[in-house]
């Protein structure tokens, strides 16, 4: 399932309301009406994805501009896992399986 070549696409920013609340962030998804409670780095990931279809490595590179991700390979693995979780929730969509 977690193929590192998989492309993911987030909904446009206006599809959700993001509300930081102390340690966590609330994300209200307009289309489903579901409120997600997420921790870092989920809000940052969604923001960095914008509306492009990206793979985990591309996203890791974008995040590395603002955050210290440590080892690049580890980061890609971790980001792939988070992306898969977000896809399960329907906050991002798997666009193609390369």
């Amino acid at each position: 399932m977690a193929n590192p070549k998989t492309l993911y696409q987030a909904e446009p920013a206006d599809a959700r309301i993001v509300e930081p609340l102390d340690m966590m962030t609330l994300i209200y998804q307009r289309r489903s009406g579901i409120t997600h409670m997420v921790g870092e780095p989920v809000p940052q990931m969604l923001e960095a994805m914008g509306e492009d279809a990206v793979d985990a490595a591309t996203l890791a590179a974008r995040l590395a501009v603002s955050f210290d991700l440590g080892g690049q390979d580890d980061a890609v693995t971790l980001i792939t896992e988070r992306l898969e979780e977000l896809a399960e929730l329907g906050l991002v969509e798997r666009v193609t399986d390369a």
Binding site: I17, E19, L21, L26, Y28, R30, G33, T35
Partner: peptide, 16 residues
């Protein structure tokens, strides 16, 4: 849940 966005906005305003 049924109130949708209005519920979210009302509750976050209250909590904050």
């Amino acid at each position: 849940v049924a109130l949708g966005e209005a519920g979210f906005i009302t509750l976050t305003r209250f909590v904050k």
